[in-house]
């Protein structure tokens, strides 16, 4: 089985000279299709940079990133924009929705930008999976933070992307709403067979994943399969003790 997304020896540095910070130091990882992978680590560990590089938002200094068979690092900005639109889905921590569009319009936005007609059956399945059927005509200002994030999840899934990238999707939510969002995300992935890469700093969120990558100082320090929250927490604490 080929990997949905794959990084090979990716390095990324910010700043120059004495002020240079190594965000990613020779990271290689492959995410299988249908896998829900969490990336966890303390702040400054490079987890967001890894996500940005995998998603084609940022370009590594060296190394390669493949989405399926496409090497992202070789694409022009315009091609990467098209790839983001057609083959990748995003969920950010905040500001996930365009305030002037309704929930329904936000969900269909990537398709409208591409000028493609939505696949109604698929869109209905996605909307039902995130439980937004009765909120489609609402404006973002009429939705709770959790509902807004569910809109973002639906928007990310509606194009049937090869990978959905989620950057701290529960970062602005309280624990109740966080758990609810993760259940929706988990269910959508299960029902729709999607691949998800999620960055978080919360071990409880990582516990929803099939696989958890632990990053520290720009390097992969652990790769856990179906861990529990306690296992993830232990690893994190071990990192803290070592530092």
């Amino acid at each position: 089985m080929t990997a949905a997304v794959r990084a090979v020896a990716v390095c990324r540095e910010y700043g120059i000279g004495a002020a240079a910070v190594t965000a990613l130091d020779n990271v290689s990882v492959a995410v299988q299709r249908g896998c829900f992978m969490a990336v966890i680590g303390p702040s400054g560990s490079g987890k967001s940079t890894l996500l940005h590089c995998l998603a084609g938002l940022d370009t590594p200094d060296s190394g390669e990133v493949y989405l399926g068979e496409t090497e992202l690092t070789r694409l022009s900005e315009q091609d990467r924009t098209r790839l983001r639109r057609d083959r990748i889905g995003f969920v950010f921590q905040a500001f996930n929705v365009v305030p002037v569009l309704t929930a329904g319009e936000n969900i269909l936005l990537p398709l409208r930008l591409a000028g493609r007609a939505p696949d109604r059956q698929w869109a209905d399945r996605v909307i039902d999976a995130v439980g937004l059927r009765d909120r489609l005509r609402h404006r973002p200002s009429q939705l709770s933070g959790g509902q807004q994030q569910r809109v973002a999840v639906a928007r990310a899934l509606v194009t049937r992307p090869e990978v959905v990238f989620a950057d701290e999707p529960t970062g602005n939510l309280d624990s109740g709403a966080s758990a609810e969002l993760m259940r929706f995300l988990r269910r959508s992935i299960g029902e729709l067979g999607q691949t998800v890469v999620m960055v978080t700093h919360n071990p409880a969120m990582a516990a929803y994943a099939d696989r958890t990558l632990v990053l520290n100082d720009g390097r992969v320090v652990d790769d856990l399969r179906s861990p529990t929250a306690e296992q993830v927490l232990d690893r994190m604490q071990a990192l803290g003790a070592r530092a």
Partner: peptide, 16 residues
């Protein structure tokens, strides 16, 4: 700015 970033991230071309 954030909204524009979001639009670009979900695939809006510069031209658009």
């Amino acid at each position: 700015r954030r909204e524009l970033g979001l639009l670009r991230a979900v695939g809006m071309q510069r031209r658009q």
